[in-house]
Amino acid sequence: MLKGEIALVTGASRGIGRAIAMALAEQGATVAGTATTEAGAQGFEKALSDAGYQGAGLVLNVGEPASIDAAMSQVTERLGAPSILVNNAGITRDNLLMRMKDDEWDAVINTNLSSVFRLSKACLRSMSKARKGRIINIASVVGAMGNAGQANYAAAKAGMMGFTKSLAREVGSRSITVNCVAPGFIDTDMTRELPEAQRDALLSTIPLARFGQPEEIASAVVFLASPGGAYITGETIHVNGGMHMA
């Protein structure tokens, strides 16, 4: 379904990003997956080749413009210009606002939101020239609902949705679509850090009564990246077991 496409997936060493990268590769895309460490990048590249898929693992710190430049030239050189960009890399620095430090705020906004600006910009020219492209931003249910202790994360994720709508309007004439997938609570390292009591409380708010699997986010991303998703742009697809119905 995605043969001939080149996908760039940030934060691909584990969790949702890994599942997205593997799912795109399974559909025939050549996938560049990024990780913040050399070990993570190699681990991803090995997983990809073990499964018999095309692609590469790259080191990228999405918070650093210079690192983005370096990774972009590597991708373009090794695989070609990306036709699918999945902005997935993200961090949390949870704290109640009254206790939140400037660096906790700045780190989350820079890594989760400014990176989307920089990477989208870096990929747009070649997409524009090709008259096709897919930008898929991994937001969060928290960006739509809010969450105590995550003002920084929620602001970044809500910002991502506004960014998505604006860019979708800018580049629609080039057949480039820009969308968000907003996961609810997914069973990953990030949510495994939550205290037991909070996990139980969360479960009671989810109609489907379970956390999601990374593959269930990946399938929404694959859909948006596929020819079948071509007429959807500026949209946020919520994948959250019903905990938030937009």
Partner: peptide, 11 residues
């Protein structure tokens, strides 16, 4: 040219 074309042209 549309607005995007002119930006790309300048670039």
């Amino acid at each position: 040219a549309d607005s995007l074309d002119t930006v790309e042209l300048v670039m």
